[in-house]
C-alpha cells in the first residue's frame, strides 16, 4: 500500500503490521519517557502553540507509536519548546526531549 502525504489521514485503519517503528525506536532509546504517557491531554490543554495551531503532544506520542510519521511532522512543527507541557505532565515525562529527538530522528532518517 502506498500513501502520499496528506492522504494518510483518510486511511480507514491504522496498519500496525506495516507501520514503520524505526523512528519510535530511535526516540525511545534516547528518551524512554515516551512509554510513560497515559494520554490525559494536559500537555495539549496547556500548550502555548495549541492556542494558535493544531499541536498536541499527546497525539505526537500516539503518532510516533503507530508509525504515522507524516501526521507527526505536521503536528510537531509549531512546537516552540516553551516547556509548559513538561511542567504539567502528571507522569513527569520529559516532553521537550522527546520533541527534540523526534525532530532529530526524522532529520536523520528522511533528509
Amino acid at each position: 500500500m502506498k500513501t502520499f502525504g496528506y492522504t494518510i489521514q483518510n486511511d480507514r485503519q491504522i496498519d500496525f503490521d506495516a507501520a514503520d517503528k524505526k523512528l519510535y525506536r530511535y526516540v525511545a532509546e534516547k528518551e524512554p519517557d515516551i512509554n510513560l504517557c497515559i494520554f490525559c491531554g494536559t500537555c495539549t490543554a496547556t500548550c502555548s502553540a495549541a492556542e494558535f495551531k493544531n499541536m498536541s503532544f499527546r497525539k505526537i506520542s500516539l503518532f510516533l507509536r503507530r508509525g504515522l510519521t507524516e501526521n507527526l511532522k505536521r503536528e510537531i512543527e509549531s512546537c516552540m519548546f516553551c516547556g509548559k507541557c513538561t511542567l504539567v505532565c502528571p507522569r513527569g515525562i520529559n516532553t521537550r526531549n522527546i520533541i527534540f529527538n523526534i525532530r532529530k530522528g526524522i532529520e536523520e532518517y528522511e533528509f
Binding site: S48, F52, K53, K73, I76, E77, S78, M80, C82, G83, K84, L87, I102, R103, I106, E107, F111
Partner: peptide, 28 residues
C-alpha cells in the same frame, strides 16, 4: 527541520488604547 512558525504571524492583536507599560507574563 520541522520548524514552522509562520502561523504565529499576526495572530495576536491588541486594542488601540495608549498604555505606558506592556506586561508580558511569560508562558510559565
Amino acid at each position: 527541520m520541522l520548524f514552522n512558525y509562520r502561523h504565529y504571524e499576526n495572530v495576536i492583536h491588541h486594542d488601540e488604547r495608549k498604555v505606558d507599560v506592556a506586561y508580558f507574563g511569560g508562558c510559565m
